[in-house]
Nucleic acid binder design. Structure first.
Length: 853
RNA sequence: GGGCGUUUAGCUCAGUUGGCUAGAGCACCAGCUCGACAAGCUGGGGGUCACAGGUUCGAGUCCUGUAACGCCCA
């Protein structure tokens, strides 16, 4: 089932794919699922037992596997359907499953090649045993949990003396498998005992006392029992000292026949009884509470027992080398970069990979044995009775185990493209550009895919074997309180439910703007309102624009819009060019949050709040105007600009909000779409530097400033919204005065004025409310409701702020060291700022004085 | 034990190489049935940037240390 992490991950991938597709790239996204061996088998096994009371052993391998296939037919594609609802634009015709026949072929070829290069071996090693699922699992499928536990101290009698050697252990029952006791070679307390023997209680064994550097003399009693069959550190110690290995556990975790009277007991019970037996013998020294880490299985969440068993392993050290090289030479980049270290640390300390699982659901290991147990790996099935290719003796059986699921997923980047054949798809699409995934899969999947690429694609030059150029490690989605979302805690948010409630685009957009480059995100359900509001805003503004574009023939080509003389047109086109640039740059660098942010600001602030509002004036004025009249021409320019801006905006939005933008695109007049009927495959907007106009931006910004100031004064004066007063704008310089003189109508419209008087001579009207902006101040007449005290308060507050700013700047400019050391540009800009603030300050003071009516 | 991340407004978060009076959304206060949108519009209040040192003319930003929370590895 899809969870929020998937929704986040797949939204990013889809944004990349949609963006690149629009940019004209051959964008391929292969969807698919893996067979999740352990999890799936466990689910079906449980279900069959619950519903029909059948165990898999009763059913037999073949019919049990058939049952899993049946289950998969019902559930297997659920996640893909959910991805479709999210809007994922995969190539669905290529959907792959890791057990598909072509994948199975690739898995066998890979296995046989590794076998032939002797990079796969079989042997009895200490592995992590999941007693519940009764299979080995790899080192990467276990986790540690801290828990309260005890440490028991047991006394072992030394043979041929009255002495005892005390050992401390957290797992007393494992003493039944002890084959030695170790002390540190420099530990004077025990030096005389090294070489002697222990009479191991509860058994009839004599075990040696050995000296080993790995023992920590500070820990416990300074002497440790050595159980090579059930502890990784002891396994190493046993190996160094040639101690025998005794396995004391059955596959289900109960004690086996080696344990004498404890045989058949579960581990917990055996623990209690062993301790009790020591007490009876007077060999029990004490129990102490401690907290320690226990190893549990990722899958079953039950305690892992290390035990020795025959398994298949991949030699990892050599495979790791090129994967390390890939990040060192920059062929592979992580984003955020810090994950590089995590990846490298794992590869540099990698252990051999246990790839066999004692399951039935998965790729059965392609190894057959003859009657002497001589194995052979083969891509094609070997028939029972057929001669062994090497020995010539009859084949008697195939290996019973299946491969770790990652043993097929690690081939994903090329097996899905037809490998091992030299396919056209391999030529066309490999190596790929982008992989996005969760951080906990860096070892399990990412590193292994890289290793597989380098190891198996020998027909490619080395520089083309790395499977993806960028590995994006996405954020972890937490709940509103910062806890991990999990099924067991019941705090997860179902993406499909959110899609139904808020819409897929809103979910996508919210996730993108809330998540900044892999930074964990706290996600309460109502956070999706952000995206919902944004989508709603887009819908509404598009409706407004499209209504005004009814007469499509009349629309000028976008290029004509650039000829417009209206300031607001020049301004919005310049802003649009800036937004296009920002969004394109952000997407090229996979900075999804930045792109989403730029879109939000442009759409809402620039386009909706200012441009559309400003354009209304000319649209209304143009209504019913004679053809060719200045009003009609101006209205046409406004329409052309609205149309061009909207259509470009829809393109920019498309990767984020594909459903909404596509639906609106269908309503855009033909002349604007330029023959591009589907937005999904339309061209990405080019960055039009010609449209950038810093002068228009500066002039419009000043008008925005003044309009805001007027609105503020209106509010302070409590001017009713239906009133249209005449305002006075007093400018500090000629350029500003010219700006307002030229765009009076615009200011009047935006600020709801009946007229604007522009003054440039410093004179100020009395009985007026006032506010300053960059370059001057605005004045509005008092109303009946005006409270001069409120006005004064507002001005004083602003004055304080400006004074504070002045002080800060004067501090800098009065400091010789600042003048000497700071960048000259910085000094210059500080001087400039000071001049502005000074003017503002003077204006404020004068206005305050003038307030005394 | 080692590594990494986070700590900025009541909440959730932005804040490029140190340099405009530290920003946004939500929430809050006041006003608005103004011909796209009340899921809206307009205006406003609100922050000793976790803490302590240091470097610097200048630190939210760099360095050292501390604390809290979280993740990963052993």
């Amino acid at each position: 089932m899809l969870h929020m992490g998937h929704a986040l991950n797949n939204t990013m991938q889809d944004i990349v794919i949609r963006h690149k597709r629009m940019c004209g790239y051959d964008a391929l996204w292969v969807p698919g699922t893996d067979h999740a061996g352990i999890a799936t088998q466990a689910v079906v096994e449980k279900k069959l037992y619950a519903e029909e009371g059948k165990t898999r052993k009763e059913m037999g391998r073949e019919s049990f596997v058939q049952e899993i296939w049946k289950w998969r037919e019902h559930h297997g594609d659920a996640i893909l359907n959910q991805l479709k609802r999210l809007g994922a634009s995969c190539d669905w015709s290529r959907t792959k499953f890791t057990l598909d026949p072509d994948m199975a072929h690739a898995v066998r070829v890979a296995f046989v090649r590794l076998w032939e290069k002797e990079k796969i071996y079989r042997g009895a090693r200490l592995v992590n045993w999941d007693c519940k699922l009764q299979t080995a699992v790899s080192d990467d499928e276990i986790e540690y949990v801290t828990q309260k536990s005890s440490i028991w101290t047991l006394r072992y009698p030394v043979k041929g003396s009255e002495e005892f050697l005390s050992v401390a252990t957290t797992r007393p029952e494992t003493m039944l498998g002890d084959t030695g006791v170790a002390v540190h070679p420099d530990d004077e307390r025990f030096g005389h005992l090294v070489g002697k023997k222990i009479l191991l209680p509860l058994t009839d064994r004599e075990i040696p006392i050995i000296a080993d550097e790995s023992v920590d003399p500070q820990f416990g009693t300074g002497a440790v029992k050595v159980t090579p069959g059930h502890d990784p550190a002891d396994y190493e110690r046993g190996h160094r000292h040639n101690l025998p290995i005794i396995n004391i556990l059955n596959k289900d975790g109960t004690m086996n026949a080696e344990c004498g009277r404890f045989e058949g007991l579960p581990r917990d019970e055996a623990r209690k009884q062993v301790v009790a037996a020591f007490e009876e013998l007077g060999l029990f020294e004490g129990e102490e509470s401690i907290t320690n880490n226990v190893t549990i299985s990722d899958r079953s969440k039950t305690a892992i027992e290390p035990l020795v068993s025959e398994q298949w392993f991949v030699k990892m050290k050599e495979l790791a080398q090129p994967a390390i090289g890939a990040v060192q030479d920059g062929t592979l980049k992580f984003k955020p970069e810090r994950w590089t270290k995590v990846y490298l640390d794992w590869l540099e300390n990698v252990h051999d990979w246990c790839i066999s699982r004692q399951l039935w659901w998965g790729h059965r290991i392609p190894v057959w044995y003859d009657e002497d147990n001589v194995p052979v790996a083969s891509v094609e099935d070997l028939e029972i009775g057929a001669p062994h290719p090497q020995t010539g003796k009859p084949i008697v059986r195939q290996d019973e185990d299946v491969l770790d699921t990652w043993g097929s997923s690690w081939l994903w980047p090329f097996a899905t493209l037809g490998w091992p054949e030299q396919s056209a798809d391999m030529q066309r699409f490999y190596p790929t550009q982008f992989l996005s995934t969760a951080r906990d899969i860096i070892y399990l999947w990412v590193a292994r895919m890289v290793m597989a690429g380098y190891e198996l694609l020998e027909d490619l030059p080395e520089s083309e074997r790395n499977p993806f150029a960028t590995c994006y490690i996405h954020a972890t989605v937490l709940d509103g309180h910062g806890r991990r979302m999990s099924k067991s805690a019941g705090n997860g948010i179902d993406p499909v439910e959110m899609i139904e409630k808020y819409g897929a685009d809103a979910v996508r957009y919210s996730l993108m703007i809330l998540t900044r480059e892999g930074q964990d995100v706290k996600l309460a359900e109502n956070r999706f309102e952000l995206g919902q509001r944004f989508c709603n805003k887009i819908w509404n503004v598009a409706r407004f624009v499209l209504q005004n574009l009814q007469d499509a023939d009349e629309l000028g080509h976008p290029s004509q819009a650039t000829q417009s003389v209206a300031l607001e047109d020049q301004w919005i086109l310049s802003r649009l060019a800036g937004a296009t640039e920002a969004v394109s740059a952000a997407l090229d660098q996979y900075d999804f949050h930045d792109a989403a942010q730029a879109l939000y600001r442009f759409t809402w602030d620039d386009f909706c709040d200012w441009y559309v509002e400003a354009a209304k004036r000319r649209l209304w004025d143009g209504e019913g105007a004679a053809e060719g009249s200045p009003e009609a021409v101006s209205a046409a320019a406004a329409r052309a600009t609205l149309g061009h801006t909207l259509s470009t905006l829809l393109k920019l939005l498309h990767p984020f909000t594909p459903f909404l933008s596509e639906a609106l695109w269908a309503e855009v007049p033909e002349s604007l779409r330029g023959g591009e009927d589907m937005l999904m495959v339309a061209s990405w907007p080019s960055i039009d530097a010609v449209l950038k106009d810093s002068s228009a931006e500066a002039h419009f910004a000043q008008i925005q400033d003044a309009v805001r100031a007027i609105r503020n004064v209106r509010s302070l004066l409590e001017t009713p919204s239906c009133d249209k007063p005449v305002a006075v704008v007093v400018c500090g310089d000629a350029d500003s005065a010219a700006n307002f003189e030229q765009h009076k109508d615009l200011v009047n419209f935006l600020a709801r004025l009946d007229g604007l008087k522009v003054r440039n001579d410093g004179s100020k009207p009395s009985s007026h409310g006032t506010d300053v902006f960059r370059g001057g101040s605005v004045f509005l007449p008092f109303t009946d409701d005006t409270d001069p005290a409120k006005l004064r308060g507002s001005l004083e507050k602003k004055l304080k702020k400006v004074e504070g700013g002045m002080r800060a700047i004067d501090g800098k400019l009065g400091n010789d060291k600042f003048l000497a050391n700071a960048d000259p540009d910085v000094v210059a800009s500080e001087r400039e700022r000071r001049a502005l603030l000074e003017a503002e300050l003077a204006t404020l003071q004068a206005n305050l004085e003038g307030l005394v009516v």
